[in-house]
Design a protein around this nucleic acid. Structure first.
Lengths: 150, 150
DNA sequence: TCTGTTATTGCAATCACTTGCAGTTGCGAG
DNA sequence: CTCGCAACTGCAAGTGATTGCAATAACAGA
């Protein structure tokens, strides 16, 4: 967590957006909580230091950061989660377990061939930074006696 | 549309659920509208023939049908769309264009290798019937002069 | 056909998220 | 340092989806 939130703040400013305390607090909340966090976690965390914070501002900030590709939104089916973008070399996607709700990462490389094929066959340019696969994690699949069929 | 909605109703009953007129109307609305339909389209359509219909019932019915894998939910980013499940031989996934919002199908075979690799490497059993890739369709990508990078 | 059980419905309240607006404030120009 | 403008915030109202609950109705069994 080497002040990645500060770095992103600078980038915000560089792109012509205002550097408000609220935005800083949202970013440091995500950084402090350690990624894969929900809106309410962020909101509560910020409220601890700034009680006037409004949920609307959290939502608007996250929308902005998402649009600028400074945070990644992970759609889990039951409310979205957010994380700060990582290094280009650390590109990854997400697997969300339908049973326990846990989010796991997997390297982007796994999805590159799919991406290529969709472009080749259909001309569709997939944006795989908002890419989430749902299913059962190893632990939950084990409990249910599920194999690879489904 | 060879009475696929009726067939699904039978399956509902076979699984121990009640065969109510409301459920029948939701299914025939989807069938009649021709797949890839939103909640409100279904709701309005059913209201034409049964004015007492409540949105809550539409949502609950869709949730049930989704859970039983009798309808497929396509998460488009701006409200979900629904379609009746197709034949096993016709399995497919969805590409949603971020620009124009159109939903396209692609054969499930394209995603099979990804599925296999996730299971092999992480033990994660992906459920790829709820699988949607967002990006730009050929037409919109062309307009924007986008190539395959992104 | 009638009856009892319990899933399901319709309504209203609630939750989650978004939007309109007026006041505030970051920040660049002077 | 001060000024002015537009971006941004907080509030409150609005929209879309979900949930609790009492009344209703599907359907198995008699």
């Amino acid at each position: 967590m080497a002040r990645r939130d500060i770095e992103i703040l600078e980038r915000l400013k560089a792109q012509g957006h205002r550097l408000t305390p609220q935005r800083g607090m949202v970013l440091s909340a995500i950084a402090g909580l350690g990624g894969h966090v929900g809106v309410d976690q962020i909101f509560q965390r910020v409220r601890e230091v700034y009680p006037y914070m409004d949920v609307a501002t959290v939502y608007r900030t996250l929308q902005l950061l998402k649009r600028l590709h400074l945070v990644t939104e992970i759609v889990t089916g039951s409310g979205a989660q957010y994380e700060l973008v990582r290094q280009e070399t650390d590109r990854h996607h997400h697997m969300v377990c339908e049973q326990c709700g846990t989010t796991f990462d997997f390297p982007a490389s796994y999805a590159e061939s799919l991406r290529g094929e969709l472009t080749r066959a259909f001309g569709f340019v997939a944006h795989l930074d908002h890419f989430t696969v749902s299913g059962l994690c190893a632990a939950c699949a084990g409990k249910q006696g599920v194999s690879t069929g489904g």
